[in-house]
């Protein structure tokens, strides 16, 4: 798994490349917690290059989302591939984590 970080306006985007699974969970968790420790107000996790998410990956997304909510910050997901979107939909993830199709939409939603 390869994770890169970039700043966009008032948000931080994590571009994730690879599977978000049980075996990669530590790398993802570390990357998100680093961003969170810098008082990031809006983290956007870009899933465009993620081909597979398993139950551990879903759990981490929810855990990270909860921790951002606790510090009154926003956690968003961006452009999941169709399989990943289907998995998240089966687990009702869109009911609790906002999913956007473009960075612009994610940034606008936060600003609103």
């Amino acid at each position: 798994m390869d994770i890169t970080q970039r700043a966009v306006l008032n948000a931080t985007v994590l571009d994730v490349n690879g599977d978000l699974t049980y075996s990669n969970r530590a790398a993802f968790k570390t990357a998100v917690e680093q961003v969170k420790s810098r008082n990031c107000q809006h983290l956007i996790v870009n899933l465009e290059q993620v081909r597979f998410v398993d139950s551990s990956g879903l759990g981490l997304l929810v855990l990270m989302s909860q921790s951002f909510k606790l510090q009154k910050a926003q956690f968003s997901l961006l452009k999941p591939q169709s399989y990943v979107r289907e998995i998240m939909s089966l687990a009702n993830i869109p009911n609790m984590i906002p999913i956007y199709e473009t960075e612009g939409d994610a940034l606008t939603a936060r600003a609103a």
Partner: peptide, 8 residues
């Protein structure tokens, strides 16, 4: 509850 590792 969700565990500290995101287990559920």
């Amino acid at each position: 509850p969700l565990s500290s590792e995101g287990e559920y």
